[in-house]
Simulated scan of single mutants.
Amino acid sequence: MPEVTALFWIVKVLTTGMGETASDYLGRTLGPVPAGALGLTGLAVALVAQFRSDRYRPWTYWSAIVMVSVFGTMAADVVHVIAGVPYAVSTAAFTVTLAAVFVAWRLSEGTLSIHSIRTRRRETFYWAAVLATFALGTAVGDLTAGTLHLGYLTSGVLFAALIAVPALAGRYLGLDAVAAFWWAYVLTRPLGASFADWMGVPAGREGLGWGTGPVTLALIVPIVALVAVLAKRHKAAAR
Rank of each mutant, 00 (worst) to 15 (best):
Val157Pro: 08
His149Arg: 14
Gly151Ile: 08
Leu153Ala: 15
His149Ser: 15
Leu158Ile: 12
Leu162Gly: 03
Ile163Gln: 05
Tyr152Thr: 12
Ala145Leu: 09
Ala135His: 07
Trp127Asp: 00
Tyr126Thr: 04
His149Cys: 06
Val130Arg: 00
Ala128Tyr: 01
Ala139Val: 03
Ala161Ile: 12
Thr144Val: 15
Ser155Gln: 12
Leu131Ile: 03
Gly151Leu: 10
Thr138Phe: 05
Ala132Ser: 15
Trp127Lys: 04
Gly137Ile: 08
Leu143His: 08
Ser155Trp: 11
Tyr152Gly: 10
Val130His: 00
Leu148Ile: 07
Val140Trp: 03
His149Gly: 08
Leu162Cys: 10
Leu136Asn: 11
Gly151Glu: 09
Gly146Ser: 11
Ala128Cys: 10
Ala129Thr: 01
Thr147Gly: 04
Phe159Met: 07
Ala129Asn: 06
Phe125Lys: 05
Leu158Ala: 14
Phe159Pro: 05
Trp127Cys: 00
Ala128Phe: 08
Thr147Gln: 10
Ala160Ser: 15
Ala135Lys: 01
Gly156His: 12
Ala139Pro: 06
Ala145Arg: 07
Val130Phe: 01
Asp142Ile: 00
Ala160Val: 08
Ala135Ile: 01
Thr147Tyr: 02
Ala132Ile: 08
Ala128Thr: 00
Gly137Gln: 09
Val140Asn: 01
Tyr152His: 14
Thr138Asp: 01
Leu158Ser: 04
Ala135Trp: 03
Leu162Glu: 04
Asp142Leu: 07
Gly137Thr: 07
Leu148Phe: 14
